[in-house]
Each structure stands twice: as C-alpha cells, then as structure tokens.
Amino acid sequence: MTPVGSCSGITSFLYGGNMMAVLWNPSLRKSVCAFIPYYTNQIEYSRICFGFGVRPDTLDPTIVKVSYPVFHSGFWYVSVFSLNALSWKRLDNFQLPRESIRLKRKSQEVVGRFIYWAGTEKLVSEKGVPYKDYTLISFDMITSQFHVIEIPSLLKVVMPMPFSVSGLGNSVIISGMIMTYVIPLFCAWRLEVDGASITRFSNLFGIPTPMVNKLIGFTSNESPIVEANVGHILGH
C-alpha cells in the first residue's frame, strides 16, 4: 500500500504496483477500490504520477493518474477517476500542460479546488547550456485543467531548489534547503496562488540546521513539523 494523499478525512493508496487505487474513510470504516486503466499505446510511458483530492463543490473524491515518457518529451496520458461516477475519464490534450513538464512524485498538496505538485522542465540557455527550471503545477478538480505556474524572478533567487510542496490554510508552502557560506538553512515560503499564477509570497521561516529532510506539516499554532536525519540513532 503506497499512500498518494489525504483530503477531507479520506486517504488514497495505490496497491499492487499501480494496479488498483484504494480510497479509505477511517471515520466511516469504509473503503472503495478502483482498477487503474492502462493504455496499450503507453508502452514507453513508464513514469507515472498520481494525485488525490476532494472536489469542494460536489465533495467528490478524485484521483488523477499522469503518465509520460521518462527520457524525452512526448504525449501526456492523464485519466481522472470520480467516485460519484465510479469511472475513469481520459483528458483531452488541451487540458494538459506542456509535454516537457515533469512532476515531482510524492510532492502533492491540495489547497481548495486545486491539487499542486512541484514541477521541473529541462531548457537550454541562449548560450546552448542545458539547465533545469523549477515550477509549480496545479490541477483544477472542477474544470479538469492543468496550469503551469511560473515562479516570479524575485522569488527564484531566494527560494530553495529543488523544493517540496505542502499547504497551510489557503496558502501553498514551498520548502527546502538553501546552502549558504555559513550554515545550511531550511526555508519555507508562503504563496498565495489563484490556481494559475502566484499573486503574493512571503518568507515563512528560515531554520539553521544541517539535518532536515522535508516539511511534514504544521501544528495548530503554525509551528513546522519536519523530518530530520539523526544519524546516531539511525532514524528520522
């Protein structure tokens, strides 16, 4: 059982090597299973990413399956499962982002009607030097539309890259390590996002520490809960 995400008290898992999706509601002590579709023309599309959220307008648990080539640009194949309909629907090309976009698996967060992932894109500079550009990807559970959210240039120079995505209230949080000349900093930025663009951003915290792996969540008073390497006890 591999967890995909949690939203509105429901948790989604994958079972059997992406063969089946499981929705579990522990409050009702009920679960629903759905076989995951596979397209015969997806032979080379071995990179698969999943997302899970609950539509706020219909309270419909929704699973998103994204697959694309591993080593080069190519067609995206995206299917969306609706619990209310008990069926999968493949999205049209106009609903998908650029083919060169890649999602960071296990990085999803749900804020409102959107599922967010950390994303990357391989580009080439004017001098012909390849580089990796980091961005934010959103999926609108109501319109079934993807959006590529460009990071403002003022934010790019101070934010961690690569970064992870989490949520705090109605805000998207990006976090990660920044290596300074003095000591490593674990930093987080609060983003106000309308689903398609970043409207406002502010620094949430910067913690001097060499040990943090990732941000897990927040306490009720917005203190960060983190996973950290503690080598002498061989744990996290």
Rank of each mutant, 00 (worst) to 15 (best):
R102G: 06
F50K: 05
E99T: 14
S138H: 00
H147Y: 10
M179A: 09
V193C: 07
M211R: 13
G195M: 00
I149C: 01
G17T: 04
S87D: 09
V230I: 14
A21I: 11
V172Y: 00
P69A: 07
Y131A: 04
L23Y: 05
C187R: 05
V110G: 01
R105Q: 12
W117R: 01
E121P: 01
M141K: 01
L136T: 02
V165Q: 02
V157M: 09
V80P: 00
T199C: 12
N18Y: 10
P56H: 09
T180S: 07
Y134H: 09
F35D: 15
F81S: 03
L154R: 11
E192T: 14
L96G: 01
I142Q: 12
P210T: 11
S164K: 09
I183F: 14
I142L: 13
V157D: 08
P162E: 06
K214H: 11
E222H: 12
D57L: 12
Q145L: 08
T143D: 09
R190V: 13
Y15L: 15
S67F: 02
P208S: 07
L14S: 05
M141G: 00
D57E: 13
K104F: 08
T2W: 13
H147W: 04
Y39R: 13
A196Y: 13
I142N: 12
V230T: 11
S82M: 03
L168M: 10
M19T: 15
W88K: 00
F35H: 14
F71Q: 12
C49V: 15
D133G: 09
N41T: 11
S73A: 10
C33A: 14
N41I: 09
V80L: 02
I207T: 11
L234V: 14
P224T: 06
K214P: 01
T180E: 08
V22E: 04
N170I: 11
F13K: 06
G169C: 04
Q95K: 06
K106Y: 12
A196I: 10
S73D: 13
V230A: 06
L154Y: 08
S223A: 13
K104I: 13
V32Q: 08
P152M: 07
M211H: 14
T62R: 03
R55W: 06
A34M: 11
E44D: 13
S144R: 08
V80G: 01
T219Y: 04
P130G: 05
R113C: 05
G16S: 06
L86I: 10
M177S: 08
P224I: 07
V64M: 04
F163P: 00
Y15R: 15
L86F: 09
G231K: 14
A85K: 07
E99P: 03
G235P: 02
G112R: 00
N213S: 12
H236V: 15
P224Q: 03
P61W: 09
T209K: 04
N170P: 04
D140T: 03
R90G: 07
E99N: 11
S27E: 12
N84M: 10
F75V: 15
G231V: 14
S202P: 00
G167M: 06
D60C: 02
V32N: 06
V64Q: 02
K132Y: 08
I63G: 02
I48R: 09
D133K: 14
E222F: 11
S73T: 13
Q145T: 13
H72K: 12
P69D: 06
V226Y: 01
P208C: 05
V148W: 02
I115W: 00
F94K: 12
T209N: 10
N229Q: 11
C49Q: 08
T219C: 04
Q42I: 06
V4S: 04
I178D: 06
